[in-house]
Design a protein around this nucleic acid. Structure first.
Length: 407
DNA sequence: CATCCACTGGAAGATATGGCGA
DNA sequence: TCGCCATATCTTCCAGTGGATG
């Protein structure tokens, strides 16, 4: 008979390392908080809100600070009768145009049942619906758009919203936009007119340095992890890894949490650097599989072409050879093949996802081209491919070739 | 020094899908 | 049903690239 048994040797309160945990105080971001409060001050004073733009990599505290300050702000303005503040906050990660953001905002504001569908309307119609909803709220409305960079350069909404009152689209409601972006270059691709209005107040959140990460980790670890289950060295190691990679507190906390889980599952008493190292490589693996899951059929075939070439030990491999391989795979699966240009696009995508690397060859009279190679271990690519795609028997054949070649 | 190779990557246009209102 | 609309994915076209070559 197998039984469940409480372990809890490592963790005291694991949630304190989780995504949704809100710490009582935000560490290491005092400057940013001060600037942010300055930018929000007009709301308290009853004036028109500033539009605010926050930049910084994932996990440097943008969202955490925003949540924390806006909550504080809402409590604090409650004492002034003439300030009527509402906050609406959405994450734009999966929304890649102004249109979709507007639809999402409308649906967020409408009671359930009244949602509109995400295609079919002219853009302006959706904007008008949004104005109706905003007008119904009245007072000051802060619209928080997290990960706003995913809309790319389709920024019409960012042009419209801040001007809504001036253009007579809104009478009663004052709108303040808070944009949060992971992408430094996002500002540059915006329409200059949008830059002007939207970036009235800009806040940069720099990546955390290793010592800062260590402080953050330490303060969470006291809540989350049992006293003798971790030592300073392991914390520094986590901090150093995350600092070197992204400067992200999120990443550092994730590493620590997964390392703890690994230790716990093995019935060990403390987290070691080995656990952290293993957590890191698991996250890496996850990232790749995540990327592969989102591939289209032809994206998969393009990747499979590289995998197949790898099995034959013919990588790195130039575009043309990959294209030939790709066409062979298309025939085998009775798929219509795309043009070389399109396959080239897929290869570029795979490169962006970190699944492939490309070496630039400058070969004079023989031209310039890339040579592609898998940037992940062959086995994990194979595994992810056979998990994810419908191409099991192809994968099987490639695996056989690989085994024959000792790859 | 112009020319050329064999690509890369940007842009515009085509096609297909799914949804709207009339 | 039809004419629109937004979007994703391809195709077509083409300028740009930079060291080797004559």
């Amino acid at each position: 008979m197998r039984r469940f048994e409480r372990k809890q040797r490592i963790f005291r309160n694991k949630d304190a390392l989780g995504e949704s945990y809100q710490p009582d105080r935000i560490e290491e971001r005092d400057d940013e908080i001060n600037q942010y409060m300055d930018a929000l001050q007009p709301i308290v004073d009853g004036w028109e809100p500033n539009n605010i733009f926050l930049y910084g990599n994932t996990g440097v505290g943008k969202t955490a600070v925003t949540d924390y300050l806006l909550e504080q702000l809402q409590t604090d303005v409650a004492q002034y009768d003439d300030v009527d503040l509402s906050v609406i906050s959405i994450n734009c990660k999966t929304l890649n145009s102004s249109y979709q953001v507007a639809v999402k905002l409308v649906n967020e504001l409408r009671p359930s049942g009244g949602e509109i569908s995400s295609t079919g309307y002219p853009q302006q119609t959706v904007f008008n619906k949004l104005y109706e909803e905003l007008e119904a709220i009245g007072g000051t409305v802060l619209v928080v758009l997290d990960e706003i960079d995913s809309i790319g350069d389709r920024d019409e909404l960012l042009y419209e919203l801040p001007r809504a009152q001036a253009n007579g689209n809104l009478e009663e409601t004052k709108v303040g936009l808070i944009g949060i972006s992971n992408d430094f270059t996002f500002r540059k691709q915006l329409d200059p007119r949008v830059q002007d209005t939207l970036c009235e107040r800009e806040l940069q959140f720099p990546p955390y340095e290793a010592p800062e990460l260590e402080n953050i980790l330490a303060s969470r670890a006291t809540i989350a992890i049992a006293d003798d289950a971790i030592d300073q060295g392991v914390l520094s190691f986590c901090a150093a890894l995350a600092a070197r990679d992204s400067g992200s507190a999120r990443q550092a906390l994730d590493l620590l949490r997964l390392a703890g889980e690994i230790a716990e599952n093995r019935d060990e008493d403390a987290i070691t650097q080995d656990h952290v190292e293993e957590a890191r490589s698991r996250f890496e693996q996850e990232r790749v599989e995540e990327g592969m899951r989102e591939l289209t059929a032809h994206g998969e075939l393009a990747l499979l072409a590289v995998v197949s070439k790898t099995a034959k030990e013919e990588t790195p491999c130039r575009t043309r050879a990959l294209y030939t391989e790709y066409k062979k795979l298309c025939e085998l699966t009775e798929t219509d093949s795309l043009t070389q240009r399109s396959v080239h696009s897929h290869l570029t995508d795979l490169r962006m996802l970190g699944i492939l690397t490309a070496y630039e060859n400058r070969n004079g009279s023989r031209g310039n081209y890339y040579s592609y190679e898998l940037d992940v271990p062959f086995d994990s690519a194979m595994e992810a491919m056979s998990d994810v795609s419908q191409l099991d028997n192809l994968c099987e054949r490639i695996r056989e070739i690989a085994v024959a070649n000792n790859v």
